[in-house]
Each structure stands twice: as C-alpha cells, then as structure tokens.
Design a binder for these strands. Structure first.
Lengths: 202, 202
DNA sequence: CCCATTACTGACTCACTGGTCAGTTATTAT
DNA sequence: ATAATAACTGACCAGTGAGTCAGTAATGGG
C-alpha cells in the first residue's frame, strides 16, 4: 500500500501558498523571488500554484492583501469605542501598537511597497485605502476628540497623524537596514510621543 | 566623408554610464533594470559598459556611491564652522537641507537601499559610514553644543538626531508612494522642528 | 466496484538577459 | 603614410525562470 502521492486540499491551498510566498518575497523581493521556490515551500507543484494564481504578479498582490486584511481593525475599533482620554489613549494603546509594527509582517509589506510600488499603482491604492487612510483618519479623530474635550489646543495641526507616526517609520527602516547597529526604537517612540503631547496639551 | 561611428572618450564614459544607470535603476529597481538599456541610454554598447564595470552589481554599487559622494559635505562643514546658535542652525540651514532631501536623488538611493539592501550588506555599510553615521553625528554635535551653551536642557536625549530626521523620512516615503495625495511636507518638518525645540529649550 | 470529475504533477517551451569575445575603427606614435 | 594601440561594437552564448499542458491519481457518487 503506497502512501497517496498527495491529498486534494482545495480549501487550504491559497493560504498555504500565500504564506510561503510571503516568506520568499520577504527574502528576495519581488523580481528575484522564484515562483518555483514558493511552490516548493508550500509543498505544491508549480502547476498547481498557477491554478490558483494566474500570474506571479497576481500572487504578489494576493500576498500583500492577505497581510493587510484586518490587521488594523483591532486598533480602529479601540479608538472608536475607548473610554480613555485622548492623551491616555495615545500614551497607551496607540504607542503599544506602534511599537509592534517595526517587527511585524507589516514592515515587510511596506518594504515591498517602497521597492515595487511604482510598478503596481493599484496595489498602492489598495494599501492607501485600507491602511494608511484609515489609520491616519482614526488618529485624526482621536486628536479631534481631544480638542473637543478641552485636552488639546485647537491649533493642533492637521498633519499630526503623520507626525505621530514618523518615528515608527524611522524605526522600521532602521530595523530593515541597520539591524546590527542598535537603536532603542521603543524609547524613540516614547520620547517622541512625550514631545508631541507636551506641544499640543493645554 | 562618413561621420565617425563613435568617439573614444575614456574619461567621460564612467560618469555617462553611471548617470544613465541611475535613471534606469530609479525607474525599474535593481533586478528589473536591463543592462542593455543602461548602455543604450548612455549611448554606448553593452560590451563597452562591461569594460568599465565588471558586473551589473558593481555598476549598481558605483551608482549608489556616485550619488552619495560629497552630498553631505556642505552641510557638515556648515555645522562645524557656523556662528549661529544651535537653535538658529536647526531652524535655518538644517531645516532647509531636510526640505530638499525628499525630492533629491538621495531619496532614490534610499529607496533602492531599502529594496535591495539585504542582498548588498557592504553597500549598506558604505552608506552607513558615509551618510547616516556622519549625518547623525553632526546633528548630535550641534545639539551638544546647544547644551554646553545653555540653550538646551541637558536631558536632551541621545536619540534626538533620529527624532529630528523622522519627518524627513516620512516625507520621502510619502513622495515615493503617495505622490498623488498631497501633503505639505515642508510644513510637516517645520512643525516638527518647532515641537522638538519647544521640548528641549531651556 | 467503476466511472466521472477535478485537484494535482512535472517535464517542457520559449522569451529573455547577463556576460563574452572576435573583429572593427578611431587615435597616437613613429 | 603606416603601424601599433586600445576604445569600441554587436552578434552570440548559456543559463534561467515564468508560464503551459498532457497526463496522473485522488475522491465521490451511483
């Protein structure tokens, strides 16, 4: 009785393939990633992969989307439903969230987008609508609420979300490029938030 | 009298080739860039290109180096020799410099490094030593001088350089990815510097 | 048990590109 | 002028990898 050469597992394949693809793209970038290697790591033949994804590019897009999906949601919900003051929220959940990003799959996605974005505009649009715009919007609302409640000065600038997020971006890039040079990225973000709050508090 | 098919211009070739290569790498990234196209844009045959650069990778490194070389120097000299107070220096020349970066070739280089850095560690080291380390060091010295002179609090954090530079990084990435969504990057940096100064001034 | 269905395989094709090299032409020295 | 030199060309090669497809085998229904 020989073992069956394979099992048919239509339901699981897409996820298995995109997960393998994520690793391969993360290691090699888009252009240098080999579809054959993705197939191998997913434990699947190249032919089958092409049954689920029409082209390499479509696979790439699926990978990006799969990482993005619902990763922000927890934070967004918390922002909308929290009982905390805006200051406490920024100091607490928001800071915690930002600390986690540079070491998460999101960092890989952002790296891939920076590298390949120009040739995949629809992917950038997708990322914009589902991550950047939502995220910045939520932070903006949090700040506005702070102004309404009299926590913050109403001069609080419109670009505050981008400002708040800036050291997170630096931390991400630092980790990607200069992993071997130490930098206390958590402290960086803490200090920065301290500064911003001092600046906008009444 | 036919025109000569070509001129021998040994002196100029490397520069012509690296400039063409910069454009091509900027458009396509490393892996998707075609050496043939670089040659064509430089007005040169592929064979000649390979006389000046042994491999595509060496060409890439030459491009990165050619952009980096001496681009910081003007700023560094100014930092060391300026008569300005630290605050005035940060508000003036440093801010001006940072405003220019996101639209300059340096932004392209950083994009390429983020994309390809992992596979070219020596290039990252080179960039670290010649740009990042020097730049952050100079800013650090400027801040220290401010502390010595009694302009700034001496709690002025060690990560201040990275903090100062953060909105410049955000502006860069924004321009690369979201060119069509407007963002007043100059204002972003101005506000940020305002905040930082308010935080560290005595 | 047998047949229909379809998930799955992997050998193959073909376009493409990094890199080479034999030969050509501009330039310089004599 | 002529020969020697070296800058330069472009056709070519060999390796590679995206995408295909004819065939195989697992599964499920009758």
């Amino acid at each position: 009785m020989a073992e069956p050469r394979y099992q048919r597992r239509k339901q699981d394949r897409p996820k298995e393939i995109t997960e393998a693809a994520f690793d391969v793209f993360a290691e090699h970038g888009y252009a240098s990633a080999r579809v054959e290697e993705v197939a191998k790591r997913a434990g699947v033949s190249k032919g089958l992969l092409y049954l689920y994804f029409k082209t390499k590019e479509e696979l790439f897009k699926a990978v990006i989307r799969s990482v993005v999906i619902r990763r922000l949601d927890a934070l967004l919900v918390t922002i909308e439903t929290t009982e905390l003051s805006s200051e406490a929220f920024i100091r607490g959940p928001l800071l915690e969230f930002m600390k986690r990003v540079p070491g998460s799959p999101v960092a890989v996605v952002i790296r891939l987008l920076i590298a390949e974005g120009q040739r995949h505009p629809d992917l950038v649009d997708y990322y914009w609508e589902n991550v950047v715009s939502k995220g910045l919007g939520a932070i903006a609302r949090c700040v506005e609420r702070g102004v309404e409640r009299g926590e913050f000065r109403d001069t609080a600038v419109t670009q505050l979300p981008q400002l708040l997020v800036a050291p997170m971006m630096v931390s991400m890039i630092w980790k990607i490029l200069f992993a071997k040079r130490t930098l206390d990225t958590d402290k960086l973000m803490e200090t920065h938030i301290e500064m911003v709050l001092a600046y906008i508090k009444l």
